[in-house]
Computed example of a mutant assay.
Amino acid sequence: MKLLCVLLPHFPFRCEALRRHDLAGRAVAVAYSLGSRRRLLDFTPGLEGLERDMPLPQALSRHGGLEILHADMPHYWRVWNGVLDALEKVSPLVEGAVLGEAYLGCDGLGLLYPDDDALAAAVRQAVPPGFEAGIGIAGGKFPACLAAAAGPSGGCRAVGNEMDWLKDLPCDLLPVSPKIKARLHDFGLHTMGKVAEIPLFKLEAQFGPEGRRLGELAAGCDSTPLCPRQSEEIIEESTSLPSPSASLDVILMAVESLLYRAFARFNHRGLGMRSVELWSRTSLDEHWQKLVHFKEPAMNCRSAMVRVRQVMECCPQPGPVEELGIKLVRIGRPAGQQDNIFTDTRSDEKLLDDIRQLELKMGAPQLYKMKEVEPWSRIPERRYVLTPLGR
């Protein structure tokens, strides 16, 4: 399958630069929190020695004058979804699971775009101003991505014979662990062409299942399927608090008002939500985000708040909240349930299901029943035993 890859390098930094014009010419690092550790998400183009996901202290040791910005992931994804919407006008098959990296299916577009240059020109017009797009066209995701990264800035590189084009590239470009890359260099396999010359069964014997994968990629064969995004209804609501607050009651009250506003937009159609994404921004520009799933679609705000309250109590905010919002996804109708003709049996099943839910919530059995074990025993304690109800 012929694929086109669109790379927007330094996408998070470009998003910040578009809404803050004073960042031009300054050394900036966009950082995110992973537990108690801070890591580098993106940085100003041209800064040497920096890599994505690098620990922030290590980045500051190499560039002491870095200005730190907190990653605004909801904003980046809003901008990225807008880019994907524009790309879907070029091709109906668009995959964009990673920020700044999109793949388009090119099969069947010959009547609209007679050649690769016309297709690349349409893609460049779909990319918003302020982003430098690299475009690569090949027969798989991996060679198309390398072509987009190696092509001229704002240009397009189309690869005809993937194996001939990849053979002189370094093996460090393979998507494998650093340990395997070091072992490849130890064996004298410094280029992809050298790796492709090794039979697959030998690579698999040396590196396991990952060996076959890197051998196929080095030969230009990437069978990873294209997974286009599915169009679905998404409802977003947000609000700003009058003053930063760390009170959980105040935050829950604001979330509840947002849910009421969201349900008013679709609840009259008999629909419910299966997932809701909660996000907040603190007064120190720190961001918090959590995706909440529902076993059955929540049909009203009251039923949704029960689950939302549990999640927010277990996942505290990083600081006083200044702005918060919700995004409702997977909106649909509830699954039909057929009533049992034997109502007593049905009620017993529902009771046992409620007991299991209570046990999962509390982490231990809460209801027990007496079970006869040794009724003939002379010791009363051995005649009966307490067992969890429902087992």
Rank of each mutant, 00 (worst) to 15 (best):
M1D: 15
M1P: 15
L3K: 05
L7Q: 05
L7D: 07
L8F: 00
P12S: 15
P12F: 07
C15S: 03
R19C: 13
D22R: 03
A29V: 10
A29M: 10
G35V: 02
R37H: 09
L40Q: 06
G46D: 05
D53S: 14
Q58R: 04
H63E: 10
L66S: 01
L69Y: 02
H70A: 12
D72S: 06
H75V: 00
L84H: 01
P92T: 05
P92Q: 02
A97L: 09
L99V: 03
G100M: 09
A102Q: 04
C106V: 08
G108V: 04
L109W: 00
L109C: 14
G110Y: 00
A122P: 13
Q125S: 12
P128W: 00
P129I: 03
G134K: 04
G136T: 00
A138G: 05
C145I: 04
A148F: 06
G154D: 08
V159P: 15
M163F: 06
M163C: 10
L166I: 00
L173R: 07
A182T: 02
R183K: 12
D186N: 08
D186T: 02
L189K: 00
M192S: 04
K194L: 15
E197L: 09
F201D: 12
E204W: 00
E210D: 10
R213Y: 14
L217V: 12
A218M: 10
G220Q: 01
D222K: 03
D222Q: 03
P225V: 11
P228R: 04
P228S: 08
E232Q: 08
S245Y: 04
D249A: 14
D249K: 05
E256I: 02
L258Q: 01
G270S: 07
L271A: 09
L271F: 03
M273E: 05
R274D: 14
S280D: 13
H287S: 10
W288H: 13
W288V: 00
K290T: 03
E296T: 11
E296L: 14
P297I: 01
C301G: 08
A304D: 07
A304Q: 01
Q310C: 13
Q310D: 15
Q310R: 11
M312L: 15
Q317C: 14
V321G: 14
V321K: 07
R333A: 15
A335D: 07
Q337V: 08
I341D: 02
L351K: 05
L352Y: 06
D353P: 02
D354Q: 08
K361C: 11
P365S: 07
L367F: 07
V373P: 03
P375N: 08
R378T: 14
Y384G: 08
V385R: 11
V385L: 10
L386R: 06
